[in-house]
Amino acid sequence: MEATQPSGTTKRRVELRITRPVLTWFARPTVTIDGVGHPAQWGIGTWAVPDDGGTVIGVYLYNRVWRFGTATRTVGTDETEDRVVYRAGWLPFGPGRLSPR
């Protein structure tokens, strides 16, 4: 297992736009980067990822009862993949979508 790098050593950032669905049922988004979860907010944010490619980014929504709208995408070193949009389904169940912007 690789040792974690000190803060500030990652130079690559991915812009992630999390769009709020019509029916959220008080849900909040969570972003996962290589399996590690981070709380997020609705809207546009940037996330630090390792410089070498193959980073798996995932987003899911949760409320106090259940988790839904899970979507994952592998982001390589290609600059066209530095902007990603997450969209959940219309209803509070089922998968979401992560697509390049």
Rank of each mutant, 00 (worst) to 15 (best):
E2P: 10
A3Q: 09
A3H: 11
T4I: 12
T4K: 14
Q5V: 10
P6A: 13
P6R: 14
P6V: 13
S7M: 11
S7V: 15
G8M: 08
G8S: 07
K11G: 11
R12T: 01
V14H: 12
L16I: 07
R17I: 02
I18C: 06
T19A: 09
R20C: 02
R20D: 05
V22G: 10
T24Q: 04
T24N: 04
W25N: 11
F26R: 05
F26S: 04
R28D: 13
P29L: 11
T30L: 09
T30S: 09
V31R: 05
V31C: 06
V31E: 04
T32D: 13
D34L: 08
D34S: 12
D34M: 07
V36T: 15
V36Q: 15
G37E: 15
G37L: 03
H38Q: 14
A40T: 02
Q41R: 14
W42G: 06
G43E: 06
I44L: 15
G45A: 14
T46Y: 07
T46R: 12
W47M: 05
W47L: 05
W47T: 03
A48T: 02
A48G: 09
V49E: 00
V49L: 03
P50D: 03
P50C: 04
D51Y: 01
D51A: 03
D52L: 11
G53R: 11
G53A: 13
G54K: 06
T55Q: 08
I57C: 02
I57E: 02
I57R: 01
V59R: 02
Y60C: 05
L61W: 08
N63E: 11
N63V: 10
V65P: 00
W66K: 13
R67H: 12
G69F: 07
G69S: 09
T70R: 13
A71L: 08
T72R: 14
T72V: 13
R73V: 06
R73L: 08
T74H: 06
T77F: 02
D78L: 12
D78A: 14
T80Y: 09
T80A: 10
D82A: 10
R83Q: 11
R83L: 09
R83W: 05
V85Y: 01
V85W: 03
Y86N: 03
R87I: 01
R87T: 10
R87V: 06
A88Q: 00
W90Y: 10
L91D: 07
G94S: 07
P95H: 07
G96R: 01
R97F: 00
R97Y: 00
R97W: 00
S99C: 08
S99V: 15
P100F: 01
P100S: 10
P100L: 03
R101W: 02
